[in-house]
Each structure stands twice: as C-alpha cells, then as structure tokens.
Amino acid sequence: MKDIIVGIISLSLGVFIIMLCRDLPIFIAKGYPGPSFFPLILSSISLICGLVLVVRSYRGMKMSGGNANLRQNIKLLGNLVKDIPVRNAIKFIVLMAVYILLIPHIGFLLTSMLFMFIVQVAYGVSMSRALTISFAAILSIYLLFIVVLKVVVPEPILGTLVFR
C-alpha cells in the first residue's frame, strides 16, 4: 500500500513540476538548456518512477487477493488516522504550528515557555514539574544563547517589555 501511495505522489509531483515550468523556457539563445530544462528532466523521471510503482503495486495486489485486498488496505489507511502514534504526532505538529505563529506576537521567550509547558502537560508531565522545567529551560536558553552567544531571537511586535 505504501508503494502505491508513493507512486501516486510521484505521478502528482511530475505533473506539478510540468505545471510550474509552463512560464519558463526549456531552451534559450542558441539552443542552450534553459531554466526549465532540468526541472522537466526531473518531472519525466518522477512520472516514470510513479508509473512503475503504481503498476508494480497493482500487480502485486492482484496476485495477493485483488479487490478484497485493496479494500482492506484502504480500511487500514483509514484506521491510520485513529492510530495513537499518528495522533500524537499530529497533536505535536499542531502545537508547534501555533507556537511558531505566536512567536512574532508575544516574543520568543514567553512563547517558548508556554510551548514547553503545554507540550509537557499534554504528554503526561505533572503541572508543577512542567512549570519548573519550562522556567529553568528558558532561563538557561536566555543565559546561554542570548547573553553569552549573543544570538538574536524574535522579539514581540509590541516591543520588548519583560520578555524579548
């Protein structure tokens, strides 16, 4: 099933590259390769790989049970969304996206402390422990990176008050 998904992605990627290259010349001047020459080679290879993967996976599925197998695989794919590791990963992706979105608004240090605290609590650390660890971690980052190494971190739009 993985191979068929990769095959479809590969085919889509090939088509996507062709669409991106529409406005760029393949050859220029005396017939020298232009800016879309290499991307179009990539697109052709991607289409060939995708086709090989889809055909090979389809043949494999046909040999090992045909449509019933396909239905079972689609069901398995549906169950993947309910899978705990996948859900945990998605939860983390959402938390990290919100964290990055908030950085320019409330600054790196405060957002990072909130992020650390929320992630720890969301994944089973007790509130008091999470708070202590978050505070200690941010203080260490502040001292090590901002004070010692002079690393620039994003500041809040409203300017520096207590936190950067």
């Binding site: 983390f92 990290m96 996206a97 964290y99 990055i100 950085i103 320019p104 790196f108 990072s112 992020f115 650390m116 992630v119 720890q120 994944y123 089973g124 650390v125 660890i133 971690a137 980052i141 990176f145 690393v151 620039v152 971190v153 994003p154």
Partner: peptide, 29 residues
C-alpha cells in the same frame, strides 16, 4: 516528554539564528 519540547526550541532558535527570519523557521517546520 521533557526532551522533545526542549529540542523543538533548539530547532526554532537555530533556524531563526541563521538569517534572523521567521520564514526560515516556517521552512524548517
């Protein structure tokens, strides 16, 4: 569950530090 968010902070600070750009942080993500 303590180590992962801490490393995530390093990812953000490291990506930002290269060009001081939040766009780089989004690219990383």
């Amino acid at each position: 569950n303590i180590l992962v968010p801490l490393i995530a902070l390093f990812c953000v600070i490291g990506s930002y530090a290269v060009n001081n750009s939040l766009f780089d942080v989004w690219s990383m993500f």
